[in-house]
Design a protein around this nucleic acid. Structure first.
Lengths: 167, 167
DNA sequence: CCAGATGCTGGAGGAAGTCAACTATCGAGA
DNA sequence: TCTCGATAGTTGACTTCCTCCAGCATCTGG
């Protein structure tokens, strides 16, 4: 039984090793070629180029406090990559809209990720397909787990103190 | 041709999404159950329980400046998880040795990673095997790329300014 | 033995994160 | 309708993490 535990632990380590390597690699290129800080790049990548995204939603996707994304959005706005717009349905929320310049930047970022990914390019097309399928399955499981946790917390939150913070 | 670029970019995003999710999940548990900061946990996980590791090597594995790991090691040492020892072969280098207490902590961390990994536990054993194989292939490719880059830089470094910083 | 290179640490400064307080707005109920 | 509690975004104080530079101790090649 130690076998399964060790396999899972090793697998977890491997996923995070590869991911961290790629993140560093991209961050270097984003900084060198596009002049983007890693956090700015991460923020921009989380936005939807076709639909406005509320500030709070971006914070939740980044896994950090809403007060933290304010300076990011400031810089993205100053760089002309996104625009803050007031949601007509709820004038409290400010939605983030990717400008055409921001879309061009995203395009260049995807160029980098799609043409300079040594670890992934070492895989054959069919291997990439299976990897994508496996990761998709893992990802949906993660989201399901998260939704379940949320529901459980919501249920308990009635008799507990108010929940604050991430997700 | 856009297809391959987009597939690679999407795959990269997926790898990092899943990894980030797991990292957050573990960090919550490490903090709640073991009282470990995420950076401390990451440092400890990079150490070799069986062999001393020089401070500089740890910095390189973490991808950060050596002066940055000094405070981490201070805290790890204060927590009794590692010990600084002077390398008898080169008295400049201080090697980090995991104590028995540190080994127990690593054991508990592996317990968490091996028994509470919702995204990976959603996969069947054979799927985990293939995932492990694919990631292993990607990882060796990454290390090969890195070694090649290093060699190229070393070769150029003779007539360039001295290289400093991360790997 | 000496000069340059290397390893660790301390300090200055910047970037990024959390929390609490504030303003503006929404929604539900008296 | 009006008021009260909840919510979205921002601000400010504070902490943590990270990098660069300087400094000290030590090694290594001539």
């Amino acid at each position: 039984m130690a076998s399964e535990r060790d396999q899972l632990a090793g697998l977890a380590q491997e996923v995070m090793d590869v991911s961290l390597w790629m993140a560093r690699h991209y961050n270097q290129r984003f900084a060198a070629d596009l002049g983007l800080t890693d956090t700015l790049a991460r923020s921009l990548l989380q936005l939807d180029p076709d639909h406005p995204v509320p500030t709070r939603a971006l914070a939740s996707m980044l896994g950090c406090d809403p007060s933290n994304v304010t300076p990011f959005v400031d810089r993205l706005e100053k760089a002309g990559l996104v625009e803050r717009q007031v949601d007509p349905h709820d004038r409290r929320v400010k939605t983030l809209v990717v400008t055409t310049e921001g879309r061009a930047m995203l395009e260049r970022m995807n160029d980098i990720r799609g043409t300079d990914s040594p670890p992934l390019q070492a895989l054959t097309p069919s291997e990439r397909d299976t990897l994508e399928k496996l990761l998709g399955k893992a990802w949906t499981a993660a989201k399901a787990y998260e939704a379940e946790q949320c529901a459980r917390i919501q249920g308990k939150a009635i008799e507990d103190k108010p929940i604050r913070g991430k997700v």
